[in-house]
Design a protein around this nucleic acid. Structure first.
Lengths: 342, 342
DNA sequence: GGGCTAGACAAAAACGTTTTTGTCAAGCAA
DNA sequence: TTGCTTGACAAAAACGTTTTTGTCTAGCCC
């Protein structure tokens, strides 16, 4: 009954107070100021629940965190910063971030959970992360008329709002660098291929080889979880082949660290016998031995971009087709790669 | 007007439908079943906003993510898994997690933001992370009568609900291990001392030394950000002293990796010339060179514990004083430590 | 039969806003 | 003067639940 009290205190009607606080035009400047001042003075805070019901908005943006790894007992640590960026932007606009979580399931069950979430009326907009090549979530969100921004692109015949890093360019860059260093036997240690980022990375890798008239060997393009363990295992399986690769491009720094461990176990010297390039420029990559050549991308900043886009989408200031932000990725050269061995 | 429709469809009153769906006793079993079935059949979902207003609950639990590092442009990646655990538990109970974010500010401004958040009526309960030794947030939450669980303990004259890892024991364990290996010049590379976890770690470290009648040298107990960079810098500053430490206990694996880098730069062989122990058992620690001796703790599981405790607190099934969960930490011996050099 | 209790449901109030519609006076043009 | 518009505010409806209070019937005891 709080706005009632404030209205009484001011000798105004509830509606005038409400409209004054929400900046409507049909309340005089003098009254508006008086209301705002008094509200502040007596510490009036509109009840969010009532506000949501009255306005038919939840003032929340939803995100479903995907469980990471095969165990599903963790969340990819990257999302901390992404969400931090999103919240930084939406908070000042009065929005909050509602986090849900998706345990490891079959895709059908995942989609059911997803639909339940967006149909439940919990949020006004959605951040869809870790897009798949074919991602049913877009259809579900569209069917529910729920504005959304994806973090990562996907196959879709309709325009949609996305923010992504230029995975293809990044892996083209990295592969070209290795080619320039004289490597001809380059392997790709990729993430799970159902995710679209993995497709882009593979494409960049293949394009780089093709531009030098090299035919990529499919058996040298492996994929696995984005973990050190998977990187280690995949690299090991490649190193026992003859001839073995002389260079590895990895989907994440974590995978690169695993690959480096495998190379070391094989008695190879990183940066001379064998080259490894990672992705992500994790804080560790500058401090490991040898420092990891990797690609930098700005997760927190991307999160901010997502947040801004969502707000504009919710205010109808912008169309989904207008949100296409491809973050350029820069290569950070360090010491884990070098000229191809003779 | 959805429950109205459902009620009409059933030929019942709104109140009976509501009470049936919420499992009240004054509705016959037959009717209840009929209502539940029909609700499912026509796909009725109670509107969360209305529910919140009606019941006076938000069905949300809040957490404020602290900005990490000195730049404040990131969130400690640990929180991904912690939040994952929390959500896993509260989701099935119909609760959601509302994430807010705290940029780097002075403590006063931080507390103002915090109060604004809890007084705003957005959440029913709180998760307070990264506790300080003296943490004003507890008082603010109590004053607002907002149930909360802290992740990490703090100084407080009243009982409060906390979940923590046994930092003191962990660092006692690690330090004792180094002492048993013959080390006598052991340094502590700690996190920021305003945080209570850093105090506990220091205490464990000091106790271990004291139990061998060793007087800890305060100039060998340094602290900094929980980053590789800080670990590197602090370790470097210790290595140039004479005599230099032969072993380092670090507040996180990240700091340990930084310390290892510094040792390597000084030409020391890790595990023989110098020993380093980390904390966290990050996925990388098994794959670096040498594999890092570290301490394992289960962030995701702790998050689940927090979630369960919050639910019970909200239901008044339990008192804050009943929530004292100290996670045991186990040491994971690997190769980054060894006998003290002669 | 009167009074009481319990069971099962309904009516209505409450939750605190936002939004829509209404009112009233002042100003102005014809 | 009449009618119309505009500016500033008020009244009331709407949002969709939950909770409180009320009603009615059947059953039971004495």
């Amino acid at each position: 009954m709080s706005i009632v009290l404030l209205a009484k205190n001011l000798g105004l009607s509830i509606s005038t107070v409400s409209r004054a606080l929400n900046g409507y035009e049909d309340v005089s400047a003098a009254t508006r100021e008086r209301v705002v001042l008094r509200a502040k003075a007596i510490g009036y805070r509109p009840n969010p629940s009532a506000r949501r019901l009255g306005a038919g908005k939840t003032l929340a943006i939803g995100v479903i965190l995907p469980a990471a790894g095969s165990t599903g007992q963790a969340v990819d640590s990257m999302y901390s910063s992404l969400l931090g960026g999103v919240v930084t932007e939406i908070e000042p606009a009065g929005y909050h971030l509602l986090a849900s979580m998706q345990a490891k399931h079959d895709a059908a069950r995942e989609n059911a959970l997803f639909e339940n979430f967006i149909r439940g009326g919990w949020v006004d907009g959605l951040l869809i992360v870790r897009t798949r090549v074919h991602d049913a979530r877009l259809e579900l969100a569209r069917a529910a008329k729920m504005p959304f921004v994806t973090y990562g692109r996907t196959e879709s015949d309709q325009p949609y709002a996305w923010v992504d890093t230029d995975n293809e360019k990044a892996f083209h860059l990295a592969t070209t660098r290795l080619l320039d260093l004289g490597h001809r036997r380059i392997a790709l240690i990729n993430g799970p291929e159902e995710y679209s980022f993995a497709q882009f990375r593979r494409r960049g890798f293949v394009r780089a080889l093709a531009s030098r008239r090299l035919k990529p060997d499919p058996t040298w393009m492996l994929h696995g979880d984005l973990t050190e363990g998977a990187g280690h295992e995949l690299c090991r399986s490649l190193l026992i082949r003859r001839p073995a690769p002389t260079a590895f491009v990895c989907a994440t720094d974590s995978m690169a660290f695993g690959a480096i461990a495998a190379c070391r176990e094989a008695g190879l010297s990183i940066g001379s016998d064998v080259s490894v390039i990672g992705y992500g420029n994790s804080s560790l990559s500058a401090f490991c031995d040898p420092p990891l050549t990797t690609m930098e991308h700005q997760v927190f900043e991307n999160g901010r971009y997502v947040g801004r886009a969502l707000l504009q989408l919710l205010r109808n200031e912008i169309q989904p087709a207008d949100v296409h932000y491809l973050e350029p990725v820069v290569l950070v050269p360090r010491k884990s790669d070098g000229p191809a061995p003779q």
